[in-house]
Design a protein around this nucleic acid. Structure first.
Lengths: 143, 143
DNA sequence: TTTCTATTGCAACTGATTCTCAATTACAAT
DNA sequence: ATTGTAATTGAGAATCAGTTGCAATAGAAA
């Protein structure tokens, strides 16, 4: 599982699987929701886990690099993340009214994107698709 | 053209089409490249146009709101924009090696996205698709 | 144990963006 | 032309996310 992946990734880079890094990892995987670094800190503090802001900010790029976490929702002012292990890549519909986030995955969409990259001779590594608008509920309320 | 669109938008909101706003608009449309607020300020200063940083930061959201400008590449630490009038929405391939940005538009892709939204009863207003990876040149260099 | 390097927390820092506020301006009504 | 009102401006202070320097600590290897 994720511990193992992270550990091996760290070892390969000559880095250590410390208890702080383990704690951040655990917290990241304790929920399926999106989060930002500050959320994480607050939640950990509440649980009595001692980690510094700096350690969180230092650990997140590592988790990104080994693919356990993805960055999402770049429209807002601060970075948001979500873990990806267990449920692969997907895109997001973001309701700008109520903030609801709907995850979505389409094999067809992925294939089409890949095809478009090929046409440009572009080797894609990752991508983000965010569609903003109104979710069904908010749309109904708008009349 | 864009002046008219902006002016009417402002009037509708009870705001004024001032010379500062006009100057920012003009500058935004003077190039087809992406830009960030600071770029804009520097370029305007060089041309001897007097505007404050604050005015730029206040004008950009208005341009976003009326659709003359879109936000792109939130991946970096600061916001990037591009104007959209004259060449409609498009997506981006971003080379993480050399920073090159390739614009791309696919009717088919747009339609597919729209279809996926319908399935979720989601009314889409705008979207961003960013594909990160290696452009042809960098990919070749990587051998 | 000693040595070496990676890691940590803290606090100071950075740089982008937003806010405050007094002075200015546009415009409609007098 | 003058006034009143509300929007707007510039300058700098404030904020806030994210980063960095550093001294103290921890772990692994010798």
């Amino acid at each position: 599982m994720e511990d193992k992946i992270f550990k091996e990734f760290l070892e390969k880079k000559g880095l250590k699987f410390t208890k702080e890094r383990a704690a951040v990892l655990k917290e990241v995987f304790s929920t399926h929701n999106h989060f930002d670094p500050d959320d994480l800190l607050i939640k950990m503090r509440k649980k009595g886990i001692r980690v510094s802001k700096a350690s969180i900010y230092r650990t997140l790029p590592l988790l990104l690099e080994c693919g356990l976490v993805e960055q999402v929702e770049k429209i807002d002012k601060h970075a948001h993340y979500e873990h990806t292990f267990g449920h692969g890549h997907h895109d997001h519909l973001i309701c700008t009214k109520c903030g609801r986030i709907i995850s979505l995955f389409s094999e067809k969409l992925e294939r089409l994107q890949e095809k478009l990259c090929k046409k440009e001779n572009f080797r894609s590594i990752s991508h983000t698709l965010e569609i903003r608008g109104y979710c069904s509920k908010c749309n109904a309320k708008l009349k």
